[in-house]
Design a protein around this nucleic acid. Structure first.
Lengths: 205, 205
DNA sequence: ACCTGAACACCGTTCAAGT
DNA sequence: ACCTGAACACCGTTCAAGT
């Protein structure tokens, strides 16, 4: 055969990632194979390996797109300057995204790079973009703190929400309790603590 | 060949699970295959399927043992009656377990049952045992609440700690920040909130 | 009753051969 | 330059044949 030039390099990679996304949406990472992606886009298996280093690379790029989609979902509308409302709004959007894209979201955490490999640099950068949203929403409450402390606090919120959503979605919580209710409890305590601290009345905890 | 009776049914299953645990400890779930477990214990592949429904079943039983080990690690020493100290102690033990058994712990959450399947009942029961530890530690702070509210609160703590450890361990946090520091921040706010609530001074949050 | 190992239908990955 | 498809070394799972 040789070159078909039905599609440019970029088009073909996008085609493969779209096919991969559909598979993961329907069946999760378990259903995703390089051969199936090839079949779905009408190319042979070798072509996948002309455009991706290996299956892990393809999965990581798909996960990268999911992180971008999450960022978009969290920033669709301005968050406002009132920190408590902004944090609650971010949480609501985050929960909506995970419940609307359960398998894509799960595959972000189900995938672990193989032995010697690490995640690409852009993965960490995308995470920092997301954490930045939380940090900016929090900022008015933490005006008296350093940048490092604000980021630390954003990480705590991000991690906790992740844990709440992830255990709920995986059914590993032995509960029919909703992630929304748990997130609400979590935020109530945390925001109360931050508010009190900002007001200077709880600095001796 | 036929029956070898080198080992009883129970011994053989235990042998297989021990081999599986060693593989996962060294290489994570990626390295675990039914054929490799068979090879490691000196039996052929068919024998694995005489003792386990399939590879998923083997993984779930291994995860069950990990949950048991976690329970043991959390209860090795009495927790005392002072709720704040008890919660901090549980957290410390939890963090120690996850850092000493990173891959076994990760495999608890990396594994998702396939399409139609759910987790076995005993999985939920083991989780409830663990949640019960948190709940009992909290109880003195939540004497004025219902049983359901206490369990809800235990779940929030459990989920948040899970999220903090899991993002740290997977390197998906873009941070070299320690889980211990994040857990500490989380607990400080939460315990302050609970204390204030118990004292009746923060009921209007 | 339970162990064996061939058989089947898949995988990921590589690479010489083609255009 | 890039697509093909055979080839290789694996998988999970089943099951007739053995003892």
């Amino acid at each position: 055969m040789g070159r078909r030039s039905d599609h440019s390099r970029e088009e073909l990679a996008a085609l493969a990632l779209d096919a991969a996304r559909k598979i993961v949406e329907l069946e999760g990472l378990r259903g995703l194979t390089a051969r199936r992606v090839a079949r779905d886009i009408g190319y042979t298996i070798g072509t996948i390996y002309n455009h991706f280093e290996n299956l892990d690379d393809l999965i990581m790029r798909l996960n990268g797109q999911t992180l971008d989609a999450l960022y978009t979902a969290l920033t669709q509308t301005p968050l406002g300057n009132e920190p408590v409302a902004a944090i609650r709004s971010l949480t609501e959007r985050y929960l909506r995204f995970t419940s609307q894209n359960p398998r894509l979201w799960a595959s972000l955490f189900e995938f672990h790079p193989s032995e010697g490999q690490g995640l690409p640099d852009w993965h960490g950068e995308k995470i920092l973009m997301l954490l930045g949203l939380v940090e900016r929403a929090l900022a008015p409450l933490l005006a008296h703190r350093t940048e490092a402390q604000r980021l630390h606090c954003a990480r705590v919120i991000w991690s906790s929400l992740h844990g709440i959503c992830s255990l709920e979605a995986s059914g590993k919580m032995a509960a029919t309790e909703s992630a929304a209710a748990m997130a609400d409890t979590f935020l109530n305590y945390l925001l109360a603590g931050l508010n009190a601290e900002a007001a200077g009345v709880a600095s001796t905890v």
